[in-house]
């Protein structure tokens, strides 16, 4: 039987998941800057304060290390905090709390303590938010053991992966590229719809080149695959979805079929997580490859302000096609 679905935007799917998880578990609460009375700068927490009250929708001062630290203590003692970063760029202020504490506490305590918390927010460029508001932070967090990092591309995954994040007993970094909030998709009408971490999705099958990406870049890859198909190049689109844990098996299976891979990511090309994915393919699938694994990443510059300059820095359909043509 196919479950009923409803068309929702990524943002509405995320809000629905958040609402339902707050309804399901009284230990779940949300804290962050201007999430309550103002209802969130990206409107994910719209209507939450009215529905759940000040006990569970907590407006904080503008202190990322402060409220992240408090969320960690609350998580260690039985609650399940959801922390909104107004943008993930601001989570850099809280890096000590996230990397030195949240990520390490379970291990450092020999398993005594768990830190079931979600840190979520927009990561990557929006439109002309410029150098200090446009970071793609997921690679930084995926580098650090002890954090789960997920970056869904579709509304259904936003819904199912957010629920899975809230129910996970580990700190989860939930990445929302600002460009995906308005993208619509069919979302299952099932309050217990969970998309498990560590499972990549094949969104388009193909036999010539694997286009591997996550979050908004998955949509860029789908559009590039459409274009390339017109020229008879048949691309397979792998939506990684979950950076930690990483589903190398699905990625490798795709590469073993196509023998060529382009890894696409918005983060700086230099040292971004796409480089890790490319390295793993090179290390484990060397004999299956007919061409070098190619990275298509953001330009290695602070994000410039002018729209034409900003667009120049972010991988787009044209860039992906160019990379594909290099190896095919």
């Amino acid at each position: 039987m196919i479950a009923a679905t409803t068309e929702l935007s990524f943002r509405d799917a995320l809000r629905k998941a958040l609402t339902e998880e707050l309804e399901r578990d009284d230990n779940v609460f949300v804290m962050g800057e201007d999430i309550g009375r103002y209802q969130g700068t990206f409107r994910v927490t719209e209507g939450m304060l009215t529905k759940f009250g000040e006990r569970r929708i907590i407006d904080t001062p503008i202190v990322e290390p402060g409220f992240t630290g408090i969320a960690i203590g609350a998580a260690m003692t039985g609650l399940r905090p959801i922390v909104e970063m107004m943008t993930m760029s601001f989570s850099i202020l809280a890096l000590d709390q996230i990397m030195n504490h949240a990520a390490k506490i379970h291990y450092m305590t020999g398993g005594q303590a768990t830190v079931p918390m979600v840190i979520r927010g927009p990561s990557g460029a929006a439109k002309q938010l410029s150098a200090q508001h446009s970071h793609s932070m997921e690679g930084w967090y995926a580098h650090c053991p002890g954090l789960k990092v997920v970056a869904p591309a579709t509304a259904a995954d936003a819904y199912g992966m957010f629920k899975a994040s809230v129910r996970d007993d580990n700190p989860v970094i939930f990445v929302e590229n600002p460009g995906v909030y308005t993208i619509k998709g069919q979302v299952p009408d099932d309050v217990n719809y969970l998309v498990p971490f560590g499972k990549a999705a094949i969104l388009r099958e193909g036999k010539d080149v694997s286009l591997i990406g996550y979050s908004r870049m998955t949509h860029v890859n789908l559009a590039a695959a459409e274009e390339l198909a017109k020229d008879g190049i048949d691309c397979e689109v792998v939506d990684v979805r979950s950076l930690t844990p990483l589903d190398t098996e699905t990625i490798y299976e795709s590469v073993r079929k196509t023998h060529r891979a382009v890894v696409v990511y918005e983060d700086w090309k230099n040292g971004g997580y796409g480089g890790e994915i490319a390295a793993r393919i090179g290390e484990d699938c060397f004999d299956d490859l007919d061409a070098p694994v190619v990275r298509c990443g953001g330009l290695n510059v602070p994000m410039p302000y002018a729209r034409v300059l900003e667009l120049e820095c972010i991988p787009d359909v044209k860039d992906v096609i160019e990379k594909v043509r290099k190896i095919r």
Binding site: P65, G69, A71, G73, A74, D96, Q97, N100, H101, A113
Partner: peptide
């Protein structure tokens, strides 16, 4: 005991968070 700490001042937030649990629960 929610931890001794290797980073100066960094354990303060954890206790405030635990106190938030105490207040909420």
């Amino acid at each position: 005991l929610l931890g001794t700490n290797g980073i100066v001042g960094a354990g303060v937030g954890s206790v405030v968070g635990a106190a938030l649990t105490a207040k909420m629960d």
